[in-house]
Simulated scan of single mutants.
Amino acid sequence: MPALDFTLDREFIELNQLLKLAGLCASGGAGKQLVASGAVQVDGALELRKTAKIRAGQRVRVGAVEIRVLGADGVG
């Protein structure tokens, strides 16, 4: 399964923006549609909140792709 590391430069990022910046969709709006479709899990649980706050240490999965969210220090 492909894994991506995403390093935060702030306290949190909204889920739809994370999906966009990680390259899994073309825009924040497309990210919202992806979340609404039921295709996104956060820490192993279905996430339907389009703007859920994602923080360092969390893992986001879309299909076979997992995003590991790291803090500015590179620790997740």
Score class of each variant (00 low, 15 high):
31 G>L: 09
21 L>V: 09
34 L>H: 10
41 Q>T: 15
19 L>N: 10
60 V>L: 10
5 D>N: 15
39 A>C: 12
28 G>S: 08
67 I>M: 06
43 D>R: 13
52 A>R: 15
36 A>D: 13
12 F>H: 05
12 F>A: 03
17 Q>M: 05
38 G>P: 07
75 V>Q: 15
63 G>T: 10
37 S>K: 12
23 G>W: 00
16 N>M: 13
57 G>R: 00
58 Q>W: 14
38 G>E: 07
10 R>S: 11
72 A>Q: 11
67 I>C: 02
52 A>L: 09
5 D>R: 13
48 L>C: 05
31 G>C: 09
75 V>I: 10
24 L>Q: 04
62 V>I: 02
6 F>E: 07
8 L>A: 05
76 G>Q: 10
9 D>I: 14
65 V>D: 13
68 R>A: 14
29 G>R: 08
15 L>A: 02
6 F>L: 05
18 L>P: 04
39 A>N: 12
30 A>W: 03
13 I>G: 03
67 I>A: 01
13 I>A: 02
44 G>N: 07
22 A>I: 03
40 V>S: 04
1 M>Y: 14
27 S>F: 12
68 R>D: 08
4 L>M: 14
1 M>E: 15
62 V>A: 01
24 L>D: 03
29 G>F: 06
69 V>I: 00
17 Q>G: 01
54 I>C: 02
32 K>N: 05
11 E>R: 09
70 L>M: 06
67 I>S: 02
31 G>W: 04
8 L>T: 11
71 G>L: 09
45 A>C: 15
27 S>M: 12
38 G>R: 09
54 I>Y: 03
53 K>P: 06
58 Q>H: 12
74 G>D: 07
37 S>I: 15
57 G>C: 04
14 E>R: 10
73 D>A: 14
59 R>F: 00
17 Q>L: 09
46 L>N: 07
70 L>H: 04
73 D>K: 03
49 R>Y: 08
28 G>P: 07
